[in-house]
Nucleic acid binder design. Structure first.
Lengths: 236, 236
DNA sequence: AAAGCCAGTTGACCCAGATCAATTTTGGAG
DNA sequence: CTCCAAAATTGATCTGGGTCAACTGGCTTT
């Protein structure tokens, strides 16, 4: 997959940014935002392109502005675990070792706001509120990661799939509003690698749920016909 | 398990603290440390006691000073996932919701340095270096959490056990020095709940490794007879 | 030292989900 | 539209690890 990276003229303004309110930048005031604008540059990636890879030296941080990304780790023999899906507003790339600790690629077209590591580090340096915001995002992610450990270690295939649908729907609420129609831009393989299952099991589980009238498999997603039933299956 | 909490007279000094160099407090200078001393109070817990529970309103943060703790989440039907083991120097209790997102109890006798949430929050308020340190710890933990997701979702029982032994040994290096003798203060059930296995599978796997001359099961732990073999089994 | 009690081990059997193997459906490209 | 390739579904079979059950070996208690 060749990286066809388009760099736009940097006329994009933070104040017009779609993720202004939810992203790291929500902690910045008007004056700071001006300065911040010059730090980031908008970069586009097309479907399937890799934004950064595990073990790469970290040269940039990324703020996802548009689209969906899969974050994953690979074992040497090719087994893959997707550790999360990123949505607009998510901040990616923070680490303590100087190297990325997972890979990230675009699911469909993606726009990110890219920050070179050093200037971003300098900008953050004495801005307590921005650091606090980043810390808050890290803690929130840590919490999600722990929830996902429970899913991976202690839930059945049915529970995993049901929990995934609900969790994904929930994450979309703040972006597209609440709805029983859940778009699934990622492939079945992606879902399988996120849930610690095989593609066949994911497919069979969807089909089973549909046969039971709990969901309907639609183009590019699923529709929750009986959300209460799905919640019961997820067995929180 | 009734909480027999002993509160010592607060003559304990941070400067004498065993975890002074590795814990959050490593970011504090001499003057700050004096003030910090008055914020925390040493509390002891005996084996099996719960320090805090998931969903409890967070009133305190904890710095583990001595002993080992298990951090876990429960499903309503009693299934348990241990999301981590805490060792001296680990900082526990940070969250964004105001409630703990996992439970923590003592494995063997434990000493913690307990900080009331509000004063600690005030102390942190304008101390960039302390916040940075906390952020660093959170990011490090997030990284660990992601590694553990790979283990839970994509590794076989043998790989899980081998990776656990190596990972645990590695964590002990900074505390007790490098050694092929790995103490395991936690029960087989704890190990199983950490690895997403049953107690029987953990036991069988240990026995198998011993039969193959890779490890030796000793009282209170295991000994790595062939560390290279264990590493090969872990299949990084 | 006997009794009781857990934690751990071991064995026999089973099943959820993996694997292997075809189809079928979908989405582009020409 | 037709053709092709990738994604998804479905079926048949297998197996790693779970479940159930018995046993063992330390500790504690008396």
């Amino acid at each position: 997959m060749k990286p066809v990276v388009t760099i736009e003229p940097n006329w994009q303004l933070c104040s017009d940014c779609a993720v202004r309110a939810s992203a790291v930048c929500s902690s910045l005031d008007g004056i700071e935002l001006r300065e911040f604008e010059h730090l980031g540059r908008r970069v586009h990636f097309s479907s399937g392109e890799t934004v950064f890879s595990e073990e790469d030296i970290t040269t940039s941080f990324y703020n996802l502005v548009e689209g969906v990304m899969r974050l994953y780790k690979l074992l040497t023999d090719g087994r893959r675990q997707i550790v999360g899906f990123a949505l607009p507003g998510d901040f990616l790339g923070m680490n303590v070792s100087g190297r990325h600790n997972f890979s990230a690629d675009a699911i469909g077209a993606v726009t990110v706001c890219q920050f070179a590591k050093a200037p971003f580090g300098r900008f953050i340096e004495d801005r307590l509120h921005l650091l606090r915001r980043i810390n808050e995002l890290a803690i929130r992610e840590l919490n999600q990661a722990r929830d996902h450990m429970v899913l991976l270690g202690r839930r059945s295939a049915d529970e995993k799939v049901a929990a995934f649908l609900l969790g994904w729907r929930e994450r979309l609420v703040s972006l597209t509003g609440a709805s029983d129609t859940v778009p699934l831009p990622m492939s079945r393989q992606d879902i399988a690698d996120y849930l610690g299952l095989t593609i066949e099991t994911v497919s069979r589980t969807f089909t089973k749920l549909e046969r039971h009238g709990v969901i309907e498999i639609i183009h590019g997603g699923i529709s929750l016909l009986d959300p209460a039933k799905v919640e019961a299956l997820a067995a929180a």
